[in-house]
Write a protein that binds this DNA or RNA. Sequence first.
DNA 1: GGAAAAGTCT
DNA 2: AGACTTTTCC
Lengths: 259, 259
Amino acid sequence: MFEARLSQGSLLKKILEAVKELVTDANFDCSETGIALQAMDNSHVALVSVLLRAQGFDPYRCDRNMPLGVNLNSLNKILKCAGNEDIITLKADDSGDTLGLIFESPNNDRIGEYELKLMDIDQEHLGIPDTDYEAIVRMASSEFQRIMRDLTVISESVTIDVEKEGIKFTSSGEFGTGAVTLKPHVDIDNEEAATSIELSQSVSLTFSLKYLTLFSKSTPLSDQVTLFLSDNVPLLVEYKMGDSAYIRYYLAPKINDDQ
Amino acid sequence: MFEARLSQGSLLKKILEAVKELVTDANFDCSETGIALQAMDNSHVALVSVLLRAQGFDPYRCDRNMPLGVNLNSLNKILKCAGNEDIITLKADDSGDTLGLIFESPNNDRIGEYELKLMDIDQEHLGIPDTDYEAIVRMASSEFQRIMRDLTVISESVTIDVEKEGIKFTSSGEFGTGAVTLKPHVDIDNEEAATSIELSQSVSLTFSLKYLTLFSKSTPLSDQVTLFLSDNVPLLVEYKMGDSAYIRYYLAPKINDDQ
DNA sequence: GGAAAAGTCT
DNA sequence: AGACTTTTCC
């Protein structure tokens, strides 16, 4: 028996909006500690990892570990039937054939009950090694999204250079080049606009803009995004939703063949 | 060495939005007095003339005349990477191979640096004779845009009749006819909504609505537009942005063969 | 919360 | 290029 009640249903709606273009099918691994989703993207280039801790639900109950194989497209369609203010309850009985979704309107005068057929998905739960990253950059998620969108005009890839003085995104293409630099700063009026850099070593890595743009679809989930970079290690892009949930993306750097 | 800093960067963004569908490639003729762009439209029917006087920039420096051949589509793409509030600086060294663009965010924590490859464009700087126009009509630019859009439904061309009593736009097509008349008036509350007519002789001229509609894409640049008309002379449509910049369109009248 | 504008997708 | 969706402004 699995049951999880999420008072802020929009969280789940936004997560599926963020992930659905990257992954089509994935397991919701439900356990005592919460719900985890981990999947390679469709082209097996990027990795998505979502965690919804049990403490973010009220109540949360999961008697035994259950991998719920979900077609994210179908789930997203069903979640579009929930209002942004709705309370969402997820349910699965021990057979694990279907995922039940209950949408309660805020004033409780409207109840939506949906059932999603589940599927068996080969579990390829990858262990992600803990890494001590050489550079950790925290910035406004909207800024990150904007920069990715801007540089897409110039090229298909971006080089990220992190130094103490700032983080620089550079692209070079047919008709020209573009570079955006953010300096670390605190904005008292706009706390979410702050940029901070922790650095043990300068890094310079190149990534596919297509994937970074897809990652940045998580912008509605958090005002801030954190980039974790190290040489020859996949980039980690993390969006934290309070303390009880996060969505993480991993992307391997491109090999620098232009030097 | 050429360098021009424009505190109101949105001006440049809007100019490119206004012109990009009419002209694909053009020279930015930079000189001591400012930046001028003059080009026939792609079908060689209309003429666009943009002037950005040096006084509109701070600072402005241009050691020698330089024609910077620009693909307006590419430039527009780069300008989309600038925020509406950004300060834009244009730069070119004497080689004239590239145009540098620097976008500074208002609070200076974000710098975008772009380079656009330049091209050689055959200089066809046309001398535009000064004309004493028979009719000069000043009206709200949004009104002009609206009328052009409305009459496009009726026909592909519009006849503009100017008399002391008003300016009349008439179209006639398959399924009907349309006419919009504006009377001269002053609006004390809405100064920009005023319509004024200076007239030495009544005129009646017919123009392609396609081009007038393209001209009216300059609406965001100025609340007012001025139409200069004379018999057998190209129409001049002028949008003034303060005293230091303007954009002018010229369009030859259609031959009246329906009479 | 609605309308207008921009961006994105077909 | 057009329509739809999304975002921003009022």
